[in-house]
Simulated assay, not measured.
Amino acid sequence: MTKHIAHVESAVKKWLQPDNFALKKAIDKTVSEGLFSTEDIRYQIRVLKRNVESGQIREWAERSGLKDERSAAGKKVLCLHAGNLPLVGFQTALGVILSGADYYGKLSRKDPYLMQSFLKLAEHELTGSEIQFSTDLNAFRELNADEVIFAGSEDSVEVIKKEIAGIKATRAEAGYHIRTAKYSMVYLDNKDPETMKDFAEAVLRYEGQGCRSVAIVVSPYRLDSFKCEMTDYIELFWMHNPPEGKVSPGVEYQFAFNKAIERSQAWLDHFLIQETDELPKYDRVVNWVPGDEAKVREMVSKAGKQLQSVYTTGNRIEGVETELVSKAQRPDLWWKPDGVDVIRTLINNER
Rank of each mutant, 00 (worst) to 15 (best):
I149N: 00
M230T: 15
A202Y: 07
A174Q: 05
T135G: 06
P243T: 11
F133V: 06
R179F: 03
T180E: 01
Y183N: 00
K227L: 15
I149P: 02
K246T: 07
Q132A: 10
A174P: 00
A174M: 05
E201L: 13
T180K: 02
S153V: 05
P243H: 10
R205H: 07
A172M: 02
N241P: 07
S153W: 04
D146M: 14
P193I: 01
I216K: 05
F150I: 01
P242V: 05
M239A: 12
V157R: 08
K168A: 02
G208T: 12
S248P: 01
M230A: 15
T135P: 04
I149R: 00
V186D: 06
M196C: 08
L236S: 14
R222H: 15
T135D: 06
K161S: 07
D198V: 03
E229P: 09
E244H: 11
A202V: 08
V148D: 02
F237V: 04
Y187I: 02
I160W: 04
L223Y: 10
S219V: 08
P249Q: 01
K191W: 05
G166K: 06
P243C: 14
F199Y: 14
N241Q: 11
R212H: 08
G152W: 07
F140Q: 06
G245I: 01
F140M: 06
P242Q: 04
A169N: 01
M185K: 03
E207A: 13
V247K: 03
L188H: 12
W238S: 13
A174N: 04
D146N: 15
N190I: 07
V148F: 06
F199S: 09
E130A: 11
G152A: 02
P249C: 00
S184D: 02
D198M: 05
F199H: 13
